[in-house]
Write a protein that binds this DNA or RNA. Structure first.
Lengths: 251, 251
DNA sequence: ACCTGAACACCGTTCAAGT
DNA sequence: ACCTGAACACCGTTCAAGT
């Protein structure tokens, strides 16, 4: 009869509904458990409609990854409000990213898969652009923080490096530690003895010391800073993690 | 008639044949292009026989990953023979791992996939054990190198850290830089401006400086060291990379 | 204009039937 | 004892038919 025309708001709400459902499936059955068939079965729409919103399964994954990054951006902004010296604020960014990964481990796994496998190439142009745009948005305040610390003489920009490269060093080390220590530890006897929080602090301390970021590791109680960051800024995330662990233990 | 019985050598040779074929497919069509159907079609055996050797597709992937790690072990041993100071030798390990990843990018991608996705859990017990054993074998000389440098007073073991944690910091930073910069750069405008070799040297220099590993970055020409390492130790790998790039350009 | 779901080509894995 | 390949359950994607 009357062919229905959907407003952009309705389309957006439905897209959100689909993504939320996909996330639930991933949370329950893992990333490999996400299937278009399963997704459609739990949704009041058909396959065709899902493909009307997303060009492929990878497109859905990239969309979830982008949402996750938006959340990370909010975490980073919060981290930089920490009441402490500039190096503590930089540390807070990593503590926040780690807590977020622990509170939402599936989102973190999706991020790794999207970055490592060539998922982006199979996603739609629109989704790729949005992803890139958000990545830049959340990096900007980080760069600004590194720059102001260097300009204040609290850290030294190494010869031949620029601010962006300094931030990238921290980011890639953070990514490396989390990726290597979040997976199945049982595959490697060395890694199974390591703790994410400890090694992240160790790695970031080494890099910050390499930048001569004051105060140096040996002159400050950084473990205490981590605790303060957790309680003063990320108590909500810590709460989610502890709930997640107790529910895992009773299982 | 006479039921054939295969010797362990024959079984091993066939396994190698299967793995070699799988690697070729991955080299030509990417990791996602690897399919049991395709593998069998290019092999003089049937599906059942392949499954007689490997418990699953993940088992094949882990086997390839383990072979690659064995190769990395050989690279690391070679790196440590570099004629230079102890920090240069430590740097050589990373240069070698990077060159190997560039010379055999598919092997590197498999490693990332195996580590990030829960591939190990789907692989067979036997394959998992072998993987773990080889990982430990190639880490041992690295640990020994870090320890002797610290004992010689060329580096300082930070308070609260042990030798293994220092080595892990370098390893995870290396892994982070390579993973983030080897994929599709186009997804991120910042990353696309960064060069793997430059950022790897920057990151490792920051961490080594953080360990006070002499001589410090500012007191030495580390770019020159990288060039020396490339020509004196890894000329074969450099040659493969340049061939790979010219064949990519003519394509 | 938009939704539907049958149909398609493909996937990893198994196992009864052969030799 | 070992190999074979048809069969199975499932996957992502498409598109002619509906409303």
């Amino acid at each position: 009869m009357s062919p229905k025309i959907f407003s952009p708001e309705e389309k957006d709400a439905r897209e959100q509904e689909m993504l939320g459902c996909a996330k639930l499936i991933i949370r329950d059955e893992g990333l490999a458990g996400l299937t278009i068939d399963k997704l459609v079965k739990q949704l009041p729409y058909s396959k065709g409609t899902v493909y009307n919103h997303f060009s492929s399964k990878e497109d859905i994954m990239l969309a979830i990854c982008t949402e996750h990054m938006q959340q990370i951006g909010e975490i980073m902004a919060r981290a930089l409000t920490f009441n402490g010296n500039s190096r503590e604020k930089a540390l807070a960014v990593h503590v926040g990213s780690m807590l977020n990964s622990q509170a939402y481990p599936d989102d973190f796994m999706i991020g790794v898969s999207v970055k490592s496998a060539g998922c982006t190439s199979k996603a739609s142009e629109f989704r790729r652009l949005k992803h890139q745009q958000i990545e830049m948005a959340f990096l900007a305040p980080i760069f600004a923080h590194f720059r102001s610390a260097a300009e204040a003489g609290e850290s030294i920009v190494p010869a031949g490096m620029c601010i962006e490269q300094m931030a990238f060093s921290c980011w890639s080390a953070d990514f490396g530690v989390q990726t290597l220590l979040m997976g199945d530890n049982d595959a490697c006897s060395i890694r199974s003895q390591l703790n994410v929080e400890t090694e992240l602090l160790n790695s970031i301390n080494l890099i910050h010391d390499g930048m001569c970021w004051q105060p140096l590791a040996k002159d400050f109680d950084w473990k205490a800073s981590v605790e303060r960051i957790k309680t003063e800024i990320f108590s909500a995330e810590v709460e989610i993690i502890s709930q997640l662990q107790t529910s895992l233990n009773t299982l």
